[in-house]
Design a protein around this nucleic acid. Structure first.
Lengths: 190, 190
DNA sequence: GACAAAAGTTACATAAGTGTCACTTATATT
DNA sequence: AATATAAGTGACACTTATGTAACTTTTGTC
């Protein structure tokens, strides 16, 4: 009945991601996005009323995708395997971390009325809750130190991805060393 | 000879910092800043030709201030004391870390012509070089693991400040646990 | 082949940011 | 008191982003 679409949601979100990471929330504009999609700006307004709505939808999509992959963690036996899987996933999806932080930013300046706001607020907590099960397993197995707060353990692991590799250390060595620091620390044991 | 100034550089940079952290580089405008300073927009143009120049100058100022405080580290004897001092300083100056990352962003989209660009590019490296001495001391004293790259150790320590404390764990406990993870890891030693 | 319906475009009004210039205001010096 | 001078303002021209409405294009269905 209708004419063929020039772009799909996946393409749209792909470009939106680039722009968001490059320019941040305030620097993100419909003009920029429309140019990238090689489509008129008004076409975007057919699907999203404004920037907030588009960005919120995109973030929900992005985090759901990450959560889906993350859920595979439950299929692995034992804490150590899960630990390895998690670190590798985080490094595979480097940007998710940045986007989660951006999400807090978006929520902060979003009008309360938005329906998608609820979803966006819920997702990071979902993720934390999900990861908490993994932490509990580690503590139950006697692998993780009991006295360190769960929230810090989760945050610590997620944060490592954002360490800037200024000196261009090879990725394999980089990740390996990060795993060591997280698990055993950077101090010698005397 | 001249009339009294309505604001000084310290006040200006103070407001600029708030705006930068809140809105990011793209969201930072002269109008916003002028409003905050309760001064006309044109007045700002008396001192800075544009946003780039103002932000660059501000960042140089901010990082120099941090470096100055950091240099106190040399007065302390032994690696462990220096380690404690460093972590505490980083947590005292939480935002510097965010600003350093923002600096990379600014550099990326800055015209090559700027004179202050050089200074801005140089400062993070200065800081890394300075911290490297501290790392070398730790390795020489046999306190730090030799095989972990210096750049990672520095980045790791700087990064911890950015871990979001979603569950509102008390600051003292938070910092204490971070020191433990960095030094000894989060795994039990069996 | 005409029509319905969604996709897409062009064009407009409005709002906000930028940079500049002529102008006014305050103040130390003489 | 007169004046030089830097501080600050108001207003203009220009650019870029926003949101909307009237219009055109494509495509499946009858």
């Amino acid at each position: 009945m209708a004419r063929e679409r020039k772009f799909n949601t996946v393409e749209l979100f792909h470009e939106a991601k680039q722009l968001l990471l490059q320019h941040g929330y305030d620097g993100f504009t419909f003009s920029l996005l429309a140019d990238r999609m090689e489509v008129s700006r008004a076409a975007l307004y057919k699907y999203y009323d404004n920037k907030e709505e588009l960005i919120t939808d995109f973030m929900v999509y992005e985090m759901e995708e990450f959560l889906d992959e993350l859920k595979e963690i439950e299929k692995l036996e034992g804490f150590e395997r899960q630990f390895d899987f998690l670190i590798d996933l985080i490094f595979k999806k480097t940007e998710v971390h940045e986007l989660i932080r951006a999400a807090e930013h978006v929520i902060a300046r979003m009008e309360a009325a938005f329906t998608s706001r609820e979803k966006l607020e819920k997702l990071p907590l979902d993720m934390y809750k999900f990861l908490q099960r993994f932490i509990l397993l580690g503590k139950a197995e006697g692998k993780l130190k009991e006295h360190i707060p769960d929230g810090l353990i989760i945050g610590f692991i997620l944060q490592t991805v954002a360490i800037p590799n200024h000196f261009g250390i090879p990725k394999a060595e980089w990740i390996h060393s990060i795993k060591e620091i997280i698990s055993q620390g950077m101090f010698m044991n005397n």
